[in-house]
């Protein structure tokens, strides 16, 4: 009897040993990732603003491709629980923020509410920081991330992106009395940018002849523009549009510059069931112009009427290339 049980015991012990070593490794990696992510996040906070392309995010959560034991919930499980868990920003107006009454609101939140409503469940919001958006999915803290999440190759290796529902490119804001209507007009003048943004990289690569005046923080960059230290300032079009609206005397005459990045919903890698559902929803909602209504409701008050919704909104998951 004992002879029969002993080898069995050995194999299980051996297997347990293996599991232990992989988990300790992943634990250690999580810890290291955590530290890296937190450093990146602190850097991100310094450069605050609803910019989707701050370096904090790009650098965030380095290697998280490790297989996770926390598998995403199925559609049935979500329906049964009565709640769709959504990760959104809570301090990035007008995309995801908490309004004066303490309720979640914004462009992403309107979409999330609709997704939940059509599933017959309630949306349960979790506040995320840019750097945590991948991790909350891989560790199954939420079902879907809807946090102004720009699609990049690096991220697509870790999570699955749906069809896009928004797009972002660069914009240039300039004084009304000396407007910059075309990027070529900037030659020989100073352009203000924030360090580490897509704008900085774009102008360095494509327009090396334009002199850049770089600042660490958005606030400093905008103040430099107000002081007239540069002819114009460039960053994500959504950001400059919102700023120009709040600062009379400044206009955004270049709204679509550089590569168009798309923003999409993200689910855990391999969660095709939920992904297919979201993709289907985006297409269906496109027929009723849902995202244009969403724009009118959440973004228009911030960007003003002069902004063409088609510069920002993607309807039915189809980006028309320009």
């Amino acid at each position: 009897m004992t002879d029969q049980t002993n080898p069995k015991k050995n194999t299980t012990n051996h297997r347990e040993g293996l599991i232990m070593s992989t988990t300790t490794a992943s634990k250690l990696r999580t810890a290291l990732t955590a530290i890296a992510a937190s450093v990146a996040m602190v850097a991100g906070m310094a450069a605050c603003g609803p910019n989707a392309a701050t370096p904090s995010e790009a650098a965030a959560s380095g290697d998280t491709t490790a297989t996770s034991a926390a598998k995403a919930r199925s559609l049935d499980e979500i329906k049964q629980s009565g709640e769709l868990r959504v990760a959104v920003f809570s301090d990035k107006a007008p995309f995801g923020y908490v309004d004066k009454d303490g309720n979640y609101a914004g462009y992403d939140v309107v979409f999330a509410d609709r997704l939940a409503k059509d599933l017959g469940v309630k949306a349960l919001y979790t506040s995320v920081d840019p750097a945590a958006r991948v991790d909350v999915l891989t560790s199954n803290k939420v079902d879907v991330t809807l946090a102004n999440f720009t699609v990049t190759e690096e991220r697509a290796a870790k999570v699955d992106f749906s069809k896009p529902y928004m797009k972002v490119s660069l914009g240039i804001v300039s004084p009304e009395d000396a407007p910059i209507n075309d990027v070529k007009e900037l030659e020989g003048k100073k352009l203000i940018v924030a360090k580490g943004t897509t704008a900085e990289t774009y102008f360095e690569e494509n327009y090396p002849q334009i002199e850049l005046l770089k600042f660490d923080q958005y606030a400093d960059a905008y103040n430099a523009l107000l002081d007239g230290r540069g002819a114009a300032m460039s960053t994500d079009n959504t950001e400059v549009l919102a700023w120009a609206k709040a600062n009379p005397g400044y206009v955004v005459n270049v709204t679509e510059l550089g590569d168009v990045d798309v923003i999409a919903a993200a689910v855990q890698k391999g969660n095709t069931e939920l992904l297919d559902y979201i993709d289907g929803q985006i297409v269906t909602l496109g027929k009723e112009d849902f995202f244009h209504k969403d724009f009118e409701e959440t973004l228009a008050p911030v960007y003003g009427d002069e902004v063409d919704p088609d510069d920002i909104v993607v309807e039915g998951g189809v980006v028309d290339s320009q």
Binding site: T23, S26, K27, T30, A31, T33, A34, I35, A37, S38, A66, S68, A69, A70, K71, T126, D135, T138, S139, N140, K141
Partner: peptide, 25 residues
């Protein structure tokens, strides 16, 4: 020795990924 922040990330993300222990934040 472990920074509290690292411990927090292990407890929140690490446990879920390693053993599917989903503790809330």
């Amino acid at each position: 020795i472990m920074p509290q922040l690292a411990l927090l990330f292990i407890a929140y993300y690490g446990l879920a990924r390693a053993w599917n222990w989903n503790v809330d934040a």
